[in-house]
Computed example of a mutant assay.
Amino acid sequence: MFRTIVAPLIVAAGLGAVAGCDGGPTVNNSVTSAESENGPLAQIGALYAAFTDTQKKPPSGIKDFASFAESMPEGVQGVRSGNLVVIWSVKLDDTTPGGKGDSADEVLAYEKSVPDSGGFVLMKNRTIRKMTADEFKAAPKAAGTIEDPAKAKVKKS
């Protein structure tokens, strides 16, 4: 399991660090830990693409990220705690870093406060944008499902 899921993720993370901004998630506003290329939303984007690439299907819930808890702790913990909301089972057309073949307009994940007060949003192409609550309400959401983390059963890795 390590070789099929975690190893490609580690390689992809290393390549992203070497490549710098080219191909990694980009932020349209000031960068802090929460919104940075290594922050929780960026980690969710990387996990989503890595899982889709290695498993040949999109993740269907937090249980699919259990084996990544150590390598991407902020993203996984953000979802488990309910601070990040992920739209699950979304088919990605492009799992390469930067996801240029995926929509830059569809929401894939977001901070739980975004619908009410705005904040940072992960787009389907894995870029990160800051949106107001009104912009978020008007933005198209990727076709998938939202899982209540309190009801999710997490696989032990």
Rank of each mutant, 00 (worst) to 15 (best):
T4L: 12
V6P: 00
P8D: 01
P8Y: 03
L9G: 05
L9D: 01
L9K: 12
A13R: 07
G14N: 08
G14C: 05
L15S: 00
G16E: 00
A17M: 01
V18I: 08
V18F: 04
A19I: 00
G20S: 00
D22G: 02
G24P: 01
T26Q: 12
N28S: 06
S33F: 11
S33T: 10
A34C: 11
S36V: 10
E37V: 10
E37D: 14
E37K: 06
E37A: 11
P40S: 12
L41D: 00
L41M: 04
A42C: 03
G45Y: 12
G45C: 03
G45E: 02
A46K: 12
A46I: 15
L47M: 09
Y48C: 08
Y48R: 08
A49H: 05
A49Q: 04
A50C: 06
A50T: 09
T54P: 07
Q55C: 10
K57P: 01
P58I: 07
P59Y: 07
S60W: 13
S67F: 15
A69T: 06
A69R: 08
A69H: 09
E70I: 08
E74C: 15
E74A: 11
V76R: 07
V79L: 11
R80V: 05
R80H: 08
G82F: 11
N83Y: 15
N83V: 14
I87G: 02
W88D: 00
S89Q: 09
L92K: 07
T95V: 10
T95P: 04
T96K: 10
T96Q: 09
P97Y: 04
D102T: 07
A109Y: 09
Y110K: 03
Y110V: 01
Y110E: 03
E111T: 10
S113N: 15
S113L: 14
S117L: 15
G119S: 05
F120I: 09
K124Y: 10
N125K: 13
R126Q: 05
T127M: 10
K130L: 09
K130G: 06
D134F: 15
K137E: 08
A139T: 07
P140Y: 09
K141A: 03
A143H: 07
G144K: 15
I146F: 14
I146H: 08
D148P: 04
D148E: 06
P149K: 05
P149N: 03
K151H: 10
A152S: 08
A152P: 02
A152Y: 10
S157Q: 14
